[in-house]
Amino acid sequence: MNNVFVYCELEGTKVADVSLELLTKGRKLANQLNCQLEAILAGEHLAGVEAQVLPYGVDRVHVFDAPGLFPYTSLPHADILINLFKEEQPQICLMGATVIGRDLGPRVSSALTSGLTADCTALEIGSHEDKKAGKSYENLLYQIRPAFGGNIVATIVNPEHRPQMATVREGVMKKEVLDPNYQGEVICHEVAKYVPETDFVVKVIDRHVEQAKHNLKGAPIVVAGGYGMGSKEGFDMLFELAKELHAEVGASRAAVDAGFCEHDRQIGQTGVTVRPKLYIACGISGQIQHIAGMQDAGIIISVNNDPNAPINTIADYVINGSVEEVIPKMIKYYKKNSK
């Protein structure tokens, strides 16, 4: 009872990276709270899948294996969580801020009247004092996220309601195996007890999932462009630099919104989070949502003609100059000096 739960997302029988990242974080939170970590797997043909999650320090795995649970649809998965949580009374529930997590989380939180915070960029444990009500709380989950278009960072707490629910995007938390031989209990639930037949009303009649076209998340060097690149053609220059450096190209939301670059290359709170050893920000002013997605980069170079661009404050190297001028020079001098 009162443990930390992670809803694990499945593509077929493969557990999503974001879920493993959350198990890693969940283990740390459980240690701090001195409680157990539990995982939920819901899908079809799940025999042996628990082996993917146990190494992250999972004490109990709840398996819901039945036809119709894959591909994901809202109602059956929501009822699994709602009914399981009524029995188990978790104190915390984490899920990916993916299409699935953002479809499922709100439904569960509404049914349980528990608070849910979307797209958290950090999770911590701490105390809270409600001065108005004269109450104080220990060991609450601090759900930290940029808000209001990224102009503020808010810390959200759910003092009275359980579970405290949060979604987190892929790549925000680190994924780390705790112990490859970690021993946890595996519980196979009878799905019909949790999911009424009437839940299977929405049918997936066609489905196409493509492997990602690029490896932005894992790239050691990222060349990213912002609105300051000015055009799609401006981005061609970045692709050229990236090709030379064996880097991947990323973009800020402003550049994606302007149509300079495809959406799947967006870096930031509502895009991909990257941790490259080198990040070259070209014509990016540095909104907090963008910073949230790249601040852990090893070395940050900012090329910007605005010396006061916010991104310059976190950059290791600031090049005051126009991107049109500087990027071709970078290509030129890389070619000249690398051979």
């Binding site: 940029p146 503020i152 190297y317 090049i319």
Partner: peptide, 21 residues
């Protein structure tokens, strides 16, 4: 159920950086 515990204005922590032309 969710309460805003704290709101922090965005101030980036400045680190030592080199400025180039």
């Amino acid at each position: 159920p969710t309460k805003v515990k704290a709101v922090q204005n965005i101030v980036f922590q400045a680190k030592e950086s080199k400025t180039l032309t």
